[in-house]
């Protein structure tokens, strides 16, 4: 089977890979680039555990073909911290116990960061609707929503 050669940018680094036409971006990230931080919870766009940014927009990487990433930029959870400095959301998720099992956490962090990047002062309702495509079965969302709101306030304060 002939495979497709793709050149793209992942977390700021130029990468290239060979993929089959029906490999999803999530397959490529996990199986070829060993970026297993993005999780497969459903492969149908329902759980958000595979959330990444594609050219700055949130997408489910399970609903993007690996071949579609040609020439584009992909940001995953692995690119969220700056070296050994955690993003404030990452720091607060630990400090405010916004994770239990943690399997939803990468997707939620990527989605929440994207929200705060262009909505620095979201309401609770905005955060809840923005994250509606990120299922968490452990926490009941309470501590997640609080951590996002607290981080937003903290980042506004620092800015």
């Amino acid at each position: 089977m002939s495979r497709i050669h793709v050149t793209t940018t992942v977390n700021g680094d130029a990468v290239d890979y060979l993929c089959e036409a029906d490999d999803t971006l999530l397959d490529v990230l996990r199986d070829q680039l060993d970026l297993t931080g993005s999780k497969e919870g459903c492969a149908s766009g329902d759980c958000g555990a595979c959330t990444v940014e594609l050219d700055g927009r949130l997408v489910c990487s399970c609903l993007v073909l690996g071949a579609e990433a040609e020439g584009r930029t992909v940001e995953t959870i692995e690119g969220m911290a700056n070296g050994d400095v955690l993003h404030p959301l990452q720091k607060n998720f630990i400090e405010k116990a916004a994770l239990q099992c943690g399997v939803c956490t990468p997707g939620i962090l990527v989605a929440a960061k994207n929200l705060l990047d262009h909505t620095p002062d979201p309401s609770e309702e905005e955060v809840r609707y923005w994250l509606a495509g990120n299922l968490c079965r452990c926490t009941g969302y309470d501590k997640i929503i609080r951590a996002v709101l607290d981080t937003a306030a903290e980042m506004r304060g620092a800015a």
Binding site: L54, L58, V59, A111, A132, G133
Partner: peptide, 9 residues
Amino acid sequence: IGSTQVQGR
């Protein structure tokens, strides 16, 4: 339609 993530596509 769908979630924030689905909306992007």
